[in-house]
Amino acid sequence: MTAELFVHARVCRGTGLCRAMAPALFDLGPDGKARILRTAVSDPEELALVQDIADCCPTEAIALESSA
């Protein structure tokens, strides 16, 4: 399974939780909001991690969309 990552910039508050949990996948941009470094994730461990990050995001700004 492969999933595509999204950050909903309008609701992101830049807490940095995503970057702290997965610095290879997320960073904070110049505006202080999360940005994705790699949009497609297929490794099962990374998929689980990203799902955890999405579940923990205080503003629910991180989303995953399955692409089969």
Rank of each mutant, 00 (worst) to 15 (best):
F6P: 09
Q51G: 06
E60W: 06
T59D: 10
A61F: 12
V50A: 04
M1N: 02
S42P: 02
E46V: 03
L47S: 02
E65C: 03
M1V: 14
L25M: 05
M1L: 11
G32E: 04
V50M: 06
Q51I: 04
C18R: 05
H8S: 09
L37W: 12
D52E: 10
M21P: 00
P58C: 00
L17Y: 10
C12P: 07
E4C: 05
I53S: 13
L17M: 10
A54F: 09
R38C: 13
E4W: 10
H8F: 12
V41I: 13
R13M: 14
S42A: 07
L37F: 15
E65W: 04
A20I: 12
P44H: 07
A54C: 04
D31R: 11
A22G: 06
V7K: 08
R10Y: 02
A9Q: 15
S67D: 05
A22K: 06
S66N: 03
R13F: 04
S66P: 01
L28Q: 15
F6K: 14
E46G: 00
D43P: 04
L64N: 04
F6G: 12
A34Y: 08
P44K: 03
R38S: 11
A22V: 11
V11A: 15
V11R: 13
E60G: 00
D43K: 04
A9Y: 09
E60S: 13
L5P: 03
C57T: 01
F26S: 06
L5N: 07
A48W: 00
R38H: 09
A24L: 12
A9E: 13
I62V: 14
Q51F: 11
G32A: 04
E46C: 00
L25W: 05
F6L: 14
T59G: 02
G16S: 07
A61L: 04
E4K: 14
G29H: 01
P30L: 15
K33Y: 07
A22D: 03
G14V: 10
V50W: 00
P30M: 11
L5Q: 02
R38I: 14
C12W: 15
A3S: 08
A24M: 07
L37Q: 10
G16E: 09
I62G: 01
A54P: 04
L5T: 05
A61R: 11
S67G: 04
R38Y: 08
L28R: 06
A48K: 01
I36T: 13
L28N: 04
V50R: 00
E65Q: 11
